[in-house]
């Protein structure tokens, strides 16, 4: 293998500026985390709502919720990124479109976070639905027999249990969101993947750069995993197999 190793590359200065490549990597990590966490919060809120709506016995509502999930699940994430970045601004009213295209602060970041958040919301909606449907039908019936309205059954009986049951699958979704945030490179978010490609082009030290970036992704996934393990421990339901340790 004919390769010139240079692990000192991270302390070299970037081509047009006085930062080091290390500073670039750190700021890229910041963008990866920012996109992922913003998208995660959005996905949790929307996913919980849409997932709940999918179980509501009302044709119109469940059709809407199903359409939401199918729409975001059946188009590649990268294509969705392009749709949000290039197509959606064209569909807005003229003044707003102009503002989005020219003046919106951190345009790439906002677009990527919205896109990734909506994409992930459809996956979380699936988990939420599965969580609600895993509860015995008797729970709903008992609630209704107690004189609860359907909204109250959801609020006090179904959702508190369902959200606790689905924490383990949510862990893998949080790890996925960090991985999926890499797709944001395509619309120019200065996150880890974007910067790794840039550094490889600048310096030709691809192996060192990719190794560093891969390690940073590992750390993100690991942190997400440990963080969710803490949540899981706090909210686990006593008496379930998953909670028996």
């Amino acid at each position: 293998m004919n390769y010139h190793w240079n692990w000192g590359i991270f302390f070299d200065q970037v081509q047009n500026g006085d930062e080091t490549y290390l500073a670039w990597l750190i700021s890229a990590l910041g963008w990866t985390v920012a996109v992922s966490i913003t998208a995660w919060i959005m996905a949790l809120v929307l996913g919980a709502i849409i997932g709940t709506l999918r179980t509501v016995p009302h044709r119109g509502i469940s059709f809407f919720a199903n359409a939401w999930v199918e729409l975001f699940r059946n188009i590649p994430l990268l294509v969705q990124m392009f749709l949000w970045f290039f197509v959606v601004p064209e569909l807005l009213p003229k003044d707003l479109a102009l503002w989005v295209k020219q003046d919106m602060p951190a345009k790439e970041f906002v677009t990527a976070a919205i896109c990734l958040g909506l994409f992930t919301s459809s996956r979380i909606a699936e988990q939420t639905r599965a969580g609600i449907q895993s509860l015995p039908r008797g729970q709903t019936n008992a609630g209704l027999a107690m004189g609860f309205t359907r909204a109250q059954v959801y609020r006090y009986v179904l959702l508190p249990m369902a959200f606790r049951i689905i924490v383990p699958p949510l862990t893998s979704e949080l790890m996925n969101i960090f991985k999926n945030s890499s797709v944001a490179f395509a619309i120019g978010v200065l996150e880890l993947t974007f910067v790794s490609r840039q550094m490889q082009e600048d310096t030709s030290q691809g192996i060192e750069v990719y190794a560093a970036v891969t390690l940073l992704y590992f750390i993100c996934a690991f942190a997400a995993n440990r963080g969710m393990a803490l949540v899981e421990k706090r909210v686990q339901v006593p008496g379930y197999i998953a909670g028996a340790h």
Partner: peptide, 19 residues
Amino acid sequence: RSIPLVMVILWFFLLLPLL
């Protein structure tokens, strides 16, 4: 399973010719 697919694509594209 813990590396983003884009990074795997970049890794292979870099390493395969070298190897």
